[in-house]
Structure formats: C-alpha cells, structure tokens
Design a protein around this nucleic acid. Structure first.
Length: 510
RNA sequence: GGGGGAGUAGCUCAGCAGGUAGAGCACCGGCCUUUUAAGCCGAUGGUCGCGGGUUCGAGUCCCGCCUCCCUCACCA
C-alpha cells in the first residue's frame, strides 16, 4: 500500500486514543494481549481446502467422510456458552456456523478464541457435522486468527429473512461502503451485477470486432455533449484544463485515423446537479463503427441487450418500479414526431415556431420566449412522452438544433438521424449517424458558439482540432453512447444511482 | 435554489403539554460444553447534529447553520 492520507472516516486509533470509545479500547487491549501470547493478529495467509459455499454444497459427502476442512471468513455473530460457543462466519455471500468446544482445541487456540470479536476474520479447520437443531456446522479443531477487528461492526441479528437492527442509514451506507458490503447482501449483489454488466458489454463489443481504447480525461477543449465541465489546472503546462464531458470527439478522430471500430468505457464528468438519476461523475460507454449508420447501432443495442438478458439477468423480463419490462428483441421503433403526435396530438414537423409554442403552452408546459423550435419540441417530448416509454423504445429522428454532431436526415428536412433508447421512462442510450461533413460540422459549431455567446453555458465550443480530423476525412460512421450507471440502475431495480455507484460523491464531513 | 422529512449510546430506536437522559442489541465482568434474535445476573457507555435565544430550568419552544433522504427546479 502506498502512503494514504487519513480519510474523513475519523482519526486512526494511534492518533487520538483519548477519543476512542470503550469498545475500541477493549479491542486494542485484546490486540496487545494476543501479541503477548505470541499470536500475530495479522498473519500473511491461510490455505483453505474449501470455500464456505463449496463446504455447504458438498456437505453430505464431507461430513460423512469426516475429512478435515479448512475455511475462512468474517465472524458475524457469537453465542458463548462457557466452555463452548457457536459463531457464524461469512465468506462472500455465504455463511456457515462454527462450533468451538474448549476440550477440542489447543489451549492457545481457545484463549485466542476468547479474545475474538464480531468482525474478526478467522481461518478454521475441523470436520463438518449437523447440530441437534439441524444446522450444518464446522466443529473447529484449529483456529487461526487472520485479521483482528478493531473498529466494531454493527451486530446484526437475523433469523430466516427477518433482520433486526438492520444497518441501512443511507448516509452511512454511502459513506462506509466497507460495512455496507459486509452487512447488506443487496449492496453486494448490485456490485456484482454491475461488474457482470460491464464485463458482458466488453465481451460483446470485443467479439463484434470493436477495439477498446483510452482517450484523455483531462482536455484543453471539452465537447461531445451539452454540459458544464469541471475545470482543473495543469501545473506543468500552466494552463486550465477540463475534465471531459464525453469521449465522442476523440473516438471519432480514431475512426478518421482508420481504426474501424472503437469503444471506451470510462468516466465522464458533468458539473451539474446531483439527484437520484444524475451523478456528476458517471460511467459512459461509447462506441463507433465505420461505414455504419444509426440503424446499425439500433441492431447493436438490441443484440447487446439480448446478451445482457441471457448472461446477466438470466431472463428476458425484469421488474422496475412495479412495471414488468421485457427485453425481448426487437424493441419498438418509433419516430419522435409519431410519438408526439400519438401522445399529444401535436404535429412537430415543419412547424412555425410561434404556432408550435402556443400549442405546447396550451398543454400547460412552460415555453420560454428565447427557445427555438427544437428546444420546444424537446421540452414537450420530455414532459409528455418520455415518462410513458416504459418498455424499451427507440425514439428516432431529432430536431437538428438539438444534435450538433449528428448527420442530417437523409429524407426529412430539419431532422437528424439520431435515436435514443428509453426504458422505464429513462434514457439509456443515444446514437446517431455521425456528422462527417466538415463544412456542415463547422457551421453547427458556429451555431453553438453563437448560443454560447448568447449565454448558453452548455453549448459546445468550436473544436478546430476535431474539425481538422473531419477535413482529412472520416468515413460514414454510426456512434452510440450508453450510460452504464443508469443501465445498472434499471437492470438491478435500484432506486437511486447512488445504490449502484460504490463511492458516490457526498459533501465532505466537516 | 424552493418545499417536505430526518439527525438522541458503537447499531436500531423510544422520550416531548419544557423538570437532573431511556430500551434492546453490541461492549466489559460473572454463570452456562449442541446454541441460533441463545439465556440469566451485573457494570460501563451520551457536549440528545452545531451555534445562538426564551426560561429558574431546553433533547423538547424560537432563530440561524450543517449533513442526509424525498420532491420540484436546473440538468442527461
């Protein structure tokens, strides 16, 4: 481990012994006592013969043969009865009961056990048997303390599915993921699900011929989305840099450079509000394929979800917010114009700005006088249509004003070839036929610059370097972006992004 | 930023028409060699989020602030 500064978890015991509560004080005394006994409370390893899981699954065979079994895990509960005791240890999501009996252990081991606590990590060896009350148990003949707990773990009390004293204060959970992962099974399951999801996406893209690449997080010029960036300072260059808000513009430089299929799964940063569905630091998957368009991307998304359904969810139907959602392909595909027409009866194609504004505000939606047609449509759509898109739905063809990096629609004026995928009323993917006409791109950027000058601090700056790449020439390209956090949120049924982000940003404790 | 809720022992929580802080679990001591929310007996433990104010007296009432949750706004 490298030198780490103390965190906001509190002072280390050595720093302020007078502030220790009596529990920690007692444990430090036990630690000293163990060392006096010649026991290293933090030894270097332990060789198990089985995991707790495999010991339980092979229990019948192992208990019959009475062979020696070595297990390790964290102590979660202790029931002392004088010269005998029962404890439960946990390894990963699996728990097994241990039986300690004084005259089955060497004197030193028994003494070490007496100095044990909830939260300690034990290595034990012994034989498996079933107790009088029918619980599968390891009768311990040798105890090895593997790690001494100093900071008390909340004691859980549970029987079958009932948990007393559940440790669930949201703030504590988010600030102390270590305890959360030990005590709360759902948190552990979400972590694993997230890992499986990203692995599956990588496997899928790899097998489809995409190359995983890494592009800069700190950029002198940000772009690729409409968002406010975080600003930082590069000392070596004495220059302000931005944390990227999207990977897009760099990945497309690679496409122009002749790499036909690329992707990146990494953090983006947007200096904006935090709530259940927004996190300023979030994980984005972006992929680009040369010689393809947004139709290809729709197929790609469907194939990817089919795979996630099979390999992660193990089913193609899941529940979110009391809705049963089906991931069976094909997903519904509908143009934005059709959906708006269907849900609100409003025509959005080729409309006069003021007429449209009136119709929309008649629906009770606030329309700002500065908004153009695109923004008005966007607002109408978000208000009236998005929340209804529960089953996976590809929404096609957006107003050009909203999509400065997307190619104009091949057959409809004023639109671009773009889709977003909605599930459970949330956007989970965004894709377009990438704009590769450098002249058109320049004028879109100029329009953005005009908006920026007019006070829109989320509009794109002009990226000359990117324009040069387009001037050299980028093949027709299909591009796709997918927010991984939201995807995990939906697939795991989580209520808040913070439940699927291991260490969500919280205000530092004073 | 607006509105609502929460903050009391290590954990989960009670206390409130203002009268010297409570329970269970954890922890410590004692008893207990198949228990399982183990049990029984005893002890320790709290600037009641922080800071002001009202009052003879504030966990409780008033004001300000901090943190978290929900919600709206902003926003992917």
């Amino acid at each position: 481990m490298i030198n780490t500064p103390t965190t906001d978890q509190g002072q280390t015991p050595e720093e302020s012994p007078e502030k220790l509560d009596h529990v920690m004080r007692a444990r430090l005394e036990k630690l000293t006592r163990l060392r006096e006994l010649g026991v290293n409370p933090f030894p270097y390893g332990f060789t198990k013969t089985h995991t707790v899981e495999s010991a339980l699954s092979d229990f019948d065979k192992l208990s019959e043969s009475e062979e020696n079994v070595k297990l390790a895990g964290r102590v979660l509960s202790v029931r002392l009865m004088g010269k005998a005791a029962f404890t439960h240890i946990q390894e990963e999501a699996h728990r097994i009961q241990l039986y300690f009996k004084m005259n089955l252990l060497e004197e030193l081991d028994w003494e070490v056990f007496q100095l044990g606590d909830i939260g300690d990590i034990f290595g034990v060896s012994g034989t498996l048997f079933t107790t009088r009350t029918g619980e599968r148990t390891l009768k311990v003949s040798k105890l090895t303390l593997l790690s001494k707990n100093i900071r008390p773990l909340p004691a859980i009390k549970e029987k079958e599915d009932t948990v007393w004293f559940k440790w669930e204060d949201k703030e504590e959970v988010y600030r102390n993921r270590t305890i959360d992962l030990i005590l709360n099974r759902e948190s552990r399951e979400k972590l694993i699900a997230r890992s499986l999801i990203t692995r599956e996406i990588r496997n899928f893209l790899d097998e489809d011929g995409f190359l995983e690449v890494e592009t800069p997080i700190m950029q002198s010029m940000y772009g690729g989305a409409n968002a406010k960036p975080f600003v930082t300072h590069y000392n070596a260059l004495d220059h302000d840099y931005y944390l990227r808000i999207a990977d897009e513009l760099y990945l497309k430089r690679l496409i122009a450079g002749g790499i036909p299929k690329v992707y990146e799964i990494a953090k983006d940063f947007r200096n904006e509000g935090i709530d259940r569905f927004h996190s300023p630091e979030f994980t984005m998957m972006e992929c680009y394929a040369a010689y393809e368009d947004y139709h290809f991307c729709m197929d790609l998304v469907e194939r990817m979800f089919t795979r996630l359904a099979i390999n992660v969810l193990k089913k193609d139907v899941f529940e979110y917010d009391n809705n049963e959602i089906s991931l069976k392909a094909p997903f519904k595909r509908s143009t934005m114009a059709d959906l708006v027409k269907e849900k609100c009866g409003i025509d959005i194609i080729d409309r006069d700005r003021d007429e449209l504004a009136k119709e929309v505000s008649d629906l009770g939606i606030h329309v700002d006088t500065t908004w153009g047609t695109g923004k008005i449509i966007d607002e109408l759509f978000s208000e009236k249509v998005e929340p209804e898109l529960i089953q996976p739905t590809f929404v096609l063809d957006y107003p050009v004003e909203l999509s400065p990096l997307a190619k104009k629609h091949r057959s409809v004026d004023g639109l671009v070839e773009r889709f977003e995928l909605f599930i459970a009323g949330m956007e989970v993917a965004n894709s377009f036929s990438e704009l590769n006409d450098p002249i058109d791109q320049r004028s879109r950027f100029e329009e953005q610059a005009r908006l920026k000058a007019a006070g829109d601090d989320e509009a794109h700056p002009i990226d000359e370097d990117y324009l040069q790449a387009l001037e050299i020439g980028m093949p027709p390209t299909g591009g796709l972006g997918m927010g991984i956090d939201r995807l995990v949120l939906i697939l795991t049924g989580a209520e808040s992004l913070r439940d699927v982000i291991l260490f969500p940003t919280l205000r530092p404790r004073s």
